[in-house]
Amino acid sequence: MNRRSALQLGGSSVLFLGSGCLGWFQNTVRLCQIDIDITSTINSLQLRLSEREETIYEETYKIDSSDEPTNRVAIDDSDIPVNEGEFTLHGRVDGHGWKEWFLPQFADGADSISVSLSIEGSPPEFWFGYRTDVDC
Rank of each mutant, 00 (worst) to 15 (best):
D77P: 02
S12D: 05
D64Q: 09
D133C: 05
E51N: 11
F128L: 04
D94C: 07
P81A: 05
S66E: 10
Q105M: 09
K99R: 13
S50W: 02
F128P: 09
E100I: 01
F87C: 04
W24S: 06
G95A: 07
G85Q: 05
L22T: 05
C32N: 13
G95C: 10
R30Q: 13
T70R: 15
S44I: 01
L17D: 03
D35I: 06
F126P: 06
P123T: 00
T39Y: 04
A107D: 08
D77H: 12
K99Y: 03
G10L: 15
S12P: 07
G97I: 01
T70S: 11
L9S: 14
L49T: 04
E58N: 10
I56M: 01
G20T: 12
E51D: 11
S5G: 08
W24H: 03
R4D: 06
L47F: 00
L15V: 14
S5R: 09
S122G: 08
Y130G: 00
L7V: 15
L89T: 00
D94G: 05
E54H: 10
D64M: 04
E58Q: 13
D77G: 03
T88W: 07
L22D: 02
W101S: 03
C21Q: 09
H96K: 09
S116K: 04
T39I: 09
A6I: 15
D77A: 11
F126I: 09
D67I: 14
D94T: 05
P81S: 00
I34Y: 03
D79R: 12
F126V: 00
H96M: 10
Q33Y: 10
E58D: 12
R48G: 01
